Simulated assay, not measured.
Amino acid sequence: MPIEILYQNPQCEWIDVEAPTAKDLAYIHEKYHINTLLLEDTTDPNHLPKFEQDGDLKFFLMRENTELERRNLNNLSDVSTKLGVFLFRNKLITIHRMKNRSIRELKEEIVLPRNENIIPDKIALILALKVMRSFDDESTHLLEKMDLIENEIFLKRNNNANQIRRLYQLKRKAGLNARILSASSDWIKNFRSLNIHDAEMKDLQDKHDDVTTDFEHLTAQATNLISMFLAMSDQRANQVMKVLAIYSMYFLPLTFIAGIYGMNFDNMPELHQPFGYFITLGVMAFIALLTFLYVRRKKW
């Protein structure tokens, strides 16, 4: 049975539901009279974060960053997992589809003496802070990864197709996390309605603002790096074409002279002279020298 009572005292009861089935949701609806539409929101893998209130019931739908590395980054579920928090009277119910790091950590901390008389609103706040810290950890990881890629591109001159794929994947991941954090501002704002201190609310708001700024910076920086990478690739291609064009300048007049003397005609200048071959080679060398001096003067 995935329904478990994680904490209980006279003023607080914390019930956790992991990977709920339709039968589990029906049981929760019947016992606690929670709207089925709100319960269904907790099972939608790509539902955006939100806040809803139904009478004295407050529903916070959060999304926590996951540590999973997925190849396809198309949906919110590829970088995060949902955590539904229901608050009413002296009860707190958390519902999540998969194992949740915030739940696991708080489950270990809740038995400590300092949490002996904790209230549901305080548990919800701690969970919200842990959810925001999961994005903080991810932004730190992505920033380190971006610095590594940037050093490889500009210092080690290691520019290959794999770099652009890594940058694009990083940009996609940062963009999805930024979208989640942008939508999370609604439920964070409504934490003010809970029985928590203003300083604690300010701490949660500051953490949200910090990680939002980090992911916006990551997205912009990844976009700039991709543009710079492509510009550098074009510059290298242009440099190669420039070298080839210069070599063509050297050999074009020489090839023209060699082509003329390759014709099978008897009436050719210097054809029967003893030193005609060497005179022609000298003229070709002189033309090559003039071309070299012209290129140097133009600083090509």
Rank of each mutant, 00 (worst) to 15 (best):
S102L: 03
I103D: 10
R104H: 11
R104I: 15
E105Y: 13
E105P: 05
L106H: 05
L106A: 05
L106G: 01
K107N: 13
E108D: 14
E109T: 00
E109G: 00
E109V: 00
I110T: 00
I110H: 00
I110K: 00
V111G: 06
L112H: 06
L112Q: 06
P113A: 05
P113E: 04
P113N: 08
R114Q: 15
R114Y: 10
R114V: 13
N115S: 03
N115G: 01
N115I: 01
N117G: 13
N117V: 10
N117K: 12
I118R: 00
I119N: 08
I119M: 12
I119L: 14
I119S: 11
P120G: 01
K122M: 08
I123S: 01
A124I: 01
A124W: 00
A124G: 03
A124L: 01
L125V: 04
L125C: 04
L125I: 03
I126K: 06
A128W: 02
A128V: 06
L129V: 04
L129M: 05
K130L: 07
M132T: 07
M132C: 07
R133F: 13
S134C: 09
S134Q: 11
D136I: 11
D137H: 11
D137P: 02
E138G: 09
T140M: 14
T140K: 15
T140N: 15
H141D: 12
H141G: 05
H141T: 13
L142N: 06
L142K: 07
L143Q: 11
L143D: 11
L143E: 12
E144S: 10
E144V: 04
M146D: 02
M146F: 12
M146E: 13
D147E: 15
L148A: 10
E150N: 04
N151L: 11
N151P: 06
E152L: 08
E152W: 02
E152N: 07
I153V: 14
I153C: 03
I153N: 01
I153L: 08
F154Y: 14
F154M: 07
F154P: 03
L155S: 08
L155W: 10
K156S: 07
R157Q: 09
R157A: 12
N158Y: 07
N158S: 10
N158V: 06
N158W: 05
N158T: 08
